[in-house]
C-alpha cells in the first residue's frame, strides 16, 4: 500500500521511532500474537456448533414461501422429509395443503361447559410437534374468578386434577387468528402472514427471530424457540405440513395454526377432538349451515379484548340453559345437587 515514491523504510520510520525498531518489532509481534490467541479463545465456543446448526447452501438460498415455484416447494418438502428421517428416524409425510376456496375458519369456545381439564393443551402438544423440553404449549387455560373477566385476576397454575372448582370458570386462550393481526403488521421480513382462510401462519425458514410479533400479540399466543427444540422420536407426529407442525428450529417463532394440516383436509383441530365437554366448536363461518354460523347468530358471544381492535376469529360464548353454572341455581344449592348426581 506504500506509494512508490516512498522508500519502504521511510513510512515505517515515521510511525516507529528508530531506537525501538527491534524491541518494538518483538513487542508488536507478541501483542499481535496475544490478540489473535485471545480472539481464537473468544470464538472457541463455536466448535460446539452441530451440523444442523449452520444453514446449508440450499437452506441459505431458500426463497420465501410465497415466492417458491411448485417445483422448488416440492424439493423443500422432500428435504424436510429427509431431515426428519435423519434426525428422528421417523418416516414422515410432509404436505403443503392449500387454503380452500370459500372457507374462512372460526373457532368458538363455550365457557359454560369448559371445565379447565387442560386436555386440549396436551392434545395440541402431541399433534403439533413443539419442543418437549422445555415444553412449548400453544393453549393457556385461565382459571377465572366468578363474576370477573379480568385476566389479571386469573390463575395460570391451578391444579388440573381438581377441576372444576367451585366459584371458578375456565377460559382457554390460544391464537385468535385475528382479521387485523398486529403480529403480521410488525414483522420486518414478512415471515408471518394471514392466509385466505383466515389462518395466520409462519414460514419457520424465513423468521429471523426478532420476537417483535411476540411483543405485539395482545393474546400472548406466540412462542419462541429459545433453544434447540427437543422431541423424542416416538413423540413425533409424522403427519406434517410446511406451514404448521413440521419440526421447528432454534431461534424461530411458532404458534397455533388451527391445525391447518388437519382442518384443510376436512378434519377437526386436535384440541377440539379431545375436549370431553364439547366446549369447542370449529368450522367455516361462510357456510350458513355450519355450527359456528349458528352459534354466532343465536348465542351470546363475546371476544377477548375487543378494545384492541384485532377482530379475532376465536370467540367465546355461553349457554342460557344446561350450563354447569346454572344447575345449582335450579336445584337447592350445592349439597342437593351433589346427592342428585
Amino acid at each position: 500500500m506504500a506509494p512508490p515514491e516512498n522508500p519502504p523504510g521511510a513510512g515505517g520510520d515515521v510511525a516507529r521511532p528508530a531506537e525501538v525498531s527491534r524491541r518494538g518489532f518483538l513487542t508488536q509481534g507478541a501483542a499481535a500474537a496475544a490478540g489473535l490467541a485471545a480472539l481464537a479463545a473468544a470464538l472457541s465456543p463455536l466448535r460446539h456448533l452441530k451440523e444442523g446448526d449452520l444453514p446449508t447452501a440450499e437452506e441459505f438460498l431458500q426463497k420465501h414461501y410465497k415466492e417458491m415455484t411448485a417445483a422448488e416447494k416440492a424439493r423443500v418438502l422432500g428435504r424436510i422429509q429427509e431431515q426428519v428421517k435423519k434426525r428422528y428416524g421417523v418416516t414422515s409425510q410432509v404436505n403443503d395443503p392449500p387454503p380452500l376456496d370459500g372457507v374462512e375458519f372460526v373457532y368458538g369456545l363455550n365457557i359454560s361447559r369448559c371445565i379447565g381439564c387442560r386436555k386440549c393443551v396436551h392434545a395440541c402438544v402431541a399433534e403439533n410437534n413443539p419442543s418437549r423440553a422445555p415444553e412449548i404449549q400453544y393453549i393457556r387455560v385461565l382459571e377465572m374468578e366468578k363474576g370477573s373477566i379480568d385476566v389479571e385476576t386469573a390463575n395460570h397454575r391451578y391444579d388440573a386434577s381438581q377441576v372444576p372448582r367451585p366459584d371458578k370458570w375456565y377460559m382457554p386462550v390460544q391464537c385468535h387468528q385475528c382479521a387485523n393481526p398486529p403480529c403480521v403488521k410488525v414483522c420486518p421480513v414478512e415471515a408471518t402472514w394471514q392466509e385466505p382462510d383466515g389462518i395466520t401462519v409462519i414460514d419457520y425458514d424465513w423468521c429471523i427471530g426478532c420476537r417483535y410479533c411476540e411483543a405485539a400479540c395482545p393474546y400472548w399466543a406466540r412462542r419462541f424457540n429459545f433453544t434447540e427444540p427437543q422431541i423424542e422420536p416416538d413423540q413425533l407426529n409424522p403427519d406434517l405440513a410446511y406451514l404448521s407442525n413440521r419440526p421447528r428450529q432454534k431461534g424461530v417463532m411458532e404458534k397455533c395454526t388451527f391445525c391447518l394440516h388437519r382442518t384443510r383436509v376436512g378434519k377437526l383441530p386436535a384440541c377440539l377432538e379431545v375436549c370431553p365437554t364439547g366446549s369447542r366448536k370449529f368450522g367455516n363461518v361462510l357456510d350458513p349451515t355450519s355450527e359456528v354460523h349458528y352459534i354466532l347468530k343465536h348465542k351470546r358471544v363475546f371476544i377477548l379484548k375487543a378494545d384492541v381492535g384485532t377482530l379475532p376469529r376465536f370467540f367465546y360464548y355461553f349457554d342460557e340453559r344446561g350450563s354447569r353454572y346454572h344447575d345449582p341455581l335450579e336445584g337447592a344449592g350445592q349439597a342437593t345437587h351433589g346427592e342428585g348426581a
Partner: peptide, 21 residues
C-alpha cells in the same frame, strides 16, 4: 436476533412501510 444467519432476509422481503422495525 434468534437467527442472525438470516439477516439477508431483511434485504429480500422488507416489510416497509408497515413494520416500524
Amino acid at each position: 436476533l434468534g437467527r442472525p444467519d438470516r439477516f439477508h432476509h431483511l434485504l429480500l422481503r422488507f416489510n416497509f412501510p408497515m413494520s416500524m422495525l
